[in-house]
Simulated assay, not measured.
Amino acid sequence: MPESGHAWQKAFKGEPIEAAHVRLWTAGRMLHPDAPLLAHELYVAVLSSGAPVIEMTLSTAGERARITAQGQDPLPLLSTHGPAWRLIAGLSQSAGLTTDERGVWAQLGARP
């Protein structure tokens, strides 16, 4: 039986002030308590690349949730191996770089 879920996508300006909007937007759509902080960290990872627009995608399937932040250009190494990456890895079940290397994603499991 296929898993049902929802998906949301929104473009945010590549400006630090938008991080607060990313957290609020995420909190209004995902019930997992770590989702807003995780979305914030993913947004900031892509923001550090200088992207003028960051596309955020939230998707749910059963007990799982996936958050993706993507810019227009390939991300620098620091975006996926910098200090914030340890926090992203600690909050998620798995995380990584998108196949086109323009974004980062993280997957959350069932609520703790």
Rank of each mutant, 00 (worst) to 15 (best):
residue 71 G to N: 07
residue 73 D to T: 12
residue 102 R to D: 01
residue 44 V to C: 10
residue 48 S to H: 14
residue 45 A to M: 05
residue 85 W to R: 14
residue 86 R to W: 01
residue 89 A to Q: 15
residue 93 Q to V: 06
residue 106 A to G: 11
residue 85 W to K: 09
residue 54 I to R: 06
residue 52 P to E: 13
residue 67 I to K: 14
residue 79 S to E: 08
residue 42 L to T: 01
residue 55 E to L: 13
residue 103 G to A: 04
residue 70 Q to W: 01
residue 100 D to S: 00
residue 86 R to N: 13
residue 82 G to W: 09
residue 67 I to E: 00
residue 74 P to D: 06
residue 45 A to Q: 10
residue 70 Q to M: 05
residue 104 V to S: 04
residue 60 T to Y: 11
residue 56 M to L: 12
residue 53 V to H: 10
residue 58 L to M: 10
residue 65 A to Q: 14
residue 98 T to S: 09
residue 95 A to T: 11
residue 89 A to E: 15
residue 72 Q to V: 01
residue 89 A to I: 00
residue 77 L to W: 06
residue 59 S to R: 15
residue 97 L to T: 05
residue 73 D to Y: 08
residue 51 A to D: 14
residue 44 V to G: 04
residue 93 Q to W: 04
residue 98 T to G: 02
residue 103 G to C: 03
residue 52 P to C: 08
residue 55 E to D: 13
residue 80 T to R: 14
residue 102 R to F: 04
residue 71 G to K: 06
residue 105 W to N: 03
residue 85 W to V: 00
residue 94 S to M: 07
residue 91 L to M: 12
residue 46 V to E: 05
residue 78 L to T: 13
residue 46 V to F: 06
residue 71 G to A: 07
residue 50 G to P: 10
residue 81 H to Q: 14
residue 62 G to T: 08
residue 43 Y to R: 06
residue 72 Q to G: 13
residue 89 A to D: 14
residue 77 L to N: 07
residue 59 S to P: 00
residue 56 M to G: 00
residue 65 A to P: 07
residue 98 T to D: 02
residue 43 Y to M: 05
residue 88 I to H: 10
residue 51 A to T: 09
residue 61 A to M: 10
residue 87 L to Q: 09
residue 80 T to M: 08
residue 99 T to K: 09
residue 53 V to Y: 04
residue 69 A to Y: 02
residue 71 G to S: 05
residue 61 A to S: 15
residue 66 R to L: 08
residue 65 A to W: 13
residue 50 G to W: 10
residue 58 L to R: 12
residue 100 D to N: 04
residue 74 P to N: 05
residue 88 I to P: 12
residue 60 T to V: 03
residue 97 L to C: 08
residue 89 A to M: 04
residue 83 P to C: 02
residue 92 S to Y: 03
residue 58 L to D: 07
residue 100 D to F: 00
residue 90 G to H: 10
residue 66 R to M: 10
residue 48 S to R: 15
residue 49 S to V: 01
residue 106 A to Y: 11
residue 85 W to L: 05
residue 49 S to D: 14
residue 93 Q to G: 12
residue 54 I to E: 07
residue 100 D to C: 00
residue 47 L to E: 08
residue 83 P to G: 09
residue 69 A to C: 07
residue 80 T to L: 07
residue 94 S to H: 12
residue 80 T to S: 11
residue 98 T to C: 02
residue 66 R to K: 14
residue 55 E to T: 05
residue 42 L to W: 06
residue 96 G to R: 07
residue 52 P to S: 12
residue 66 R to C: 06
residue 52 P to W: 05
residue 83 P to V: 09
residue 60 T to S: 15
residue 87 L to T: 10
residue 88 I to Y: 09
residue 98 T to Y: 02
residue 106 A to S: 04
residue 85 W to Y: 13
residue 65 A to I: 03
residue 62 G to H: 11
residue 79 S to K: 06
residue 50 G to D: 09
residue 55 E to S: 13
residue 72 Q to A: 12
residue 71 G to V: 04
residue 105 W to Y: 15
residue 58 L to C: 11
residue 53 V to N: 08
residue 69 A to S: 12
residue 48 S to L: 08
residue 98 T to N: 02
residue 55 E to R: 14
residue 78 L to F: 04
residue 102 R to S: 01
residue 96 G to A: 03
residue 70 Q to Y: 00
residue 93 Q to E: 15
residue 86 R to L: 12
residue 81 H to C: 05
residue 101 E to Q: 14
residue 63 E to W: 00
residue 76 P to V: 03
residue 91 L to V: 00
residue 57 T to D: 01
residue 91 L to N: 02
residue 47 L to C: 11
